[in-house]
């Protein structure tokens, strides 16, 4: 269940009205880049590693392992 991949945020689209409903980020998954919703991780910043499922970032991934 729940195939998710972690990638690194390379860019975040600016939100004119500060409404996180539409917040999006460009995420690099080991050489493959995709747009991802940041609506559930508004605190994420460029350079953060995030876990993404069906195009929604769900968790900040700590750098370890």
């Amino acid at each position: 269940m729940c195939l998710a991949a972690s990638g690194t945020i390379v860019a975040i689209t600016p939100q004119p009205d500060g409404d996180s409903l539409w917040l999006r980020a460009r995420v690099d998954f080991g050489g493959v880049r995709q747009w991802v919703s940041l609506a559930c991780l508004p605190q994420a910043r460029v350079g953060d590693q995030v876990l993404v499922h069906v195009g929604l970032a769900l968790s900040l991934v700590e750098h370890e392992l």
Binding site: F29, V32, Q34
Partner: peptide
């Protein structure tokens, strides 16, 4: 090839 593993991981 580079990117293959990431892409396959992403799309299952």
């Amino acid at each position: 090839a580079p990117g293959v593993e990431s892409c396959c991981r992403l799309l299952g």
